[in-house]
């Protein structure tokens, strides 16, 4: 396996799960599939349509999202919104993310070796 393939495999492992947190966070304001895809890629999440669309339905079956068809506009769209339960789970996931980020930072720069003092 080349270095690039190894890196992309590990990146994929690391990113798995972040789309869930991001989607639950963004959908606190109702949105539809394509709009969410745009928002996420503008925010720097590398997510593909074929993973995101099934994921939204899965989160809906888990009760983390609700959906509603909006037929008022010319093109009817299915709008998703994060439920209370989904919001609670997203908060827990964000906390975990922050904890991991701090833990990794601490590993990278053990106590006493402030990275700023090295420069």
């Amino acid at each position: 396996m080349t270095m690039d393939a190894t890196l992309s495999g590990h990146l994929q492992e690391l990113r798995r799960g972040t789309v869930v947190v991001a989607s639950l966070t963004v959908l606190r304001e109702a949105g539809y599939g394509y709009s969410l895809l745009e928002t996420l890629s503008a925010a720097g999440f590398e997510v593909e349509a074929n993973t995101l669309y099934p994921l939204l339905r899965r989160l809906e079956t888990q009760g983390l999202l609700t959906s509603e068809w909006n037929t008022e506009e010319a093109r009817p769209r299915k709008f998703y919104r994060t439920t209370e339960q989904g919001d609670a789970i997203a908060a827990a996931l964000r906390d975990e993310w922050a904890r991991l980020d701090k833990a990794i930072g601490d590993l990278d720069h053990p106590a006493g070796t402030d990275p700023r003092s090295e420069q």
Partner: peptide, 8 residues
């Protein structure tokens, strides 16, 4: 849903 997503 899929059709609207594709059209979008």
């Amino acid at each position: 849903e899929l059709r609207t997503s594709i059209e979008d």
